[in-house]
Simulated assay, not measured.
Amino acid sequence: MTKAKVAVLISGRGSNMAALLYAAKNPTCPYEIALVASNNPDAPGLALAAAEGVPTFAHSHKGMKRAEFDSLIDLELRKAGAEYVALAGYMRLLSPEFVARWEGRMLNVHPSLLPRYKGLDTHQRAIDAGDSHGGCSIHIVTADLDDGPVLAQIEVAILSGDTADSLAARTLFAEHQLYPHVLAEFVTRERSPDWLLDQVRQRALALPQSDEGLSHGMSSFGIEKGKKFAYFTQDHHGIGIIALLVKTSAPEEQAMLIDSDPDLYYRPAYLGPAGWIGIRLDLGQVDWDLVEDRLQRSWRTVAPRKLTALLDVADQF
């Protein structure tokens, strides 16, 4: 099993980082910690990571502009080969540029039941509001603070006489249980057939008058139950791969694509002689811009002229 490489960003003790690190030691865990980085060279979590043989990087953010510091961190993440980023008590607001670079690949743990109590002092705010439960959330990081899609949560009961500290201590146990599990699911979702099909479906059905059906045992996409422009194949004919099949303009384009990247493209059985190309979706880190482009090109080969004209006009805006 090829494990996904995860970089963890911390600012202090790194207890959630430790939970991720020790979970990664399980041979069945689908991720490994490639780097632990911090904006605080004195962060205790760095020593723990180093003792466990995990590469570390630390640099103070003081005296640096936010985007400049984030560029430095980003460089270290890429040097480490990180594919995903996990924020674990990283007490820095991220620049829009950094968030954009890691869009859809960065998670955060937050000590509240989002969307309640974004920001700081979450436990005291829950107690003051008279809530029966606090809790924690794992969410995808977006440009807005604590505002990305929530992937999972655990409720933690607020007991009579609880203080912010006592509630925080119990919530931390919940965070340590939740984060490794959610991260493991997150890094493997791009190899999940259901998730991949849903991504293809969203893009294919966004094209004018397209619809979805079943053809030759595969999910297929066409125009008003007419000609097909795409198929989603999962281990079809027992070849053991997940792929998108789309039309090319000519056999010459098909051959050119395969020559350019034979690991990504292939000539599918039955449809290959008609100029269709297979694009593998099970290699990890799918280039969804490329998929969207190939879907649109394929759609154009079967769409009536009036529809392509409408799309051309829309593209101008």
Rank of each mutant, 00 (worst) to 15 (best):
L93N: 08
E103W: 03
R125G: 12
E83C: 14
L120F: 04
A82Q: 06
S95V: 03
S137E: 15
H110W: 13
R66A: 07
P111V: 00
H133R: 02
K79Q: 09
L94S: 14
L120W: 03
E97H: 00
E103A: 04
R116E: 02
S71L: 02
M91A: 14
V85L: 08
E83R: 14
A82M: 02
R116L: 01
D131Y: 12
A100P: 13
T122D: 03
E68K: 05
S112D: 07
K65C: 04
A80I: 06
R116A: 02
Q124R: 10
L75R: 15
V99S: 06
H61V: 01
V109Y: 14
V99D: 12
D131T: 03
A80G: 09
K65N: 10
E68M: 03
F69Q: 09
A88Q: 12
P115N: 05
A67V: 04
P115R: 07
H123K: 10
L107M: 08
T122Y: 07
D74V: 06
L107P: 15
A100N: 14
V85I: 15
E68N: 07
L93Y: 10
D121S: 10
R116G: 00
G135C: 08
S137F: 12
M106R: 15
T122Q: 09
L72V: 08
E76G: 11
R125F: 14
Y117C: 02
I140P: 08
M64D: 10
H139F: 08
I140H: 11
Q124V: 01
C136F: 04
S137L: 12
R116C: 00
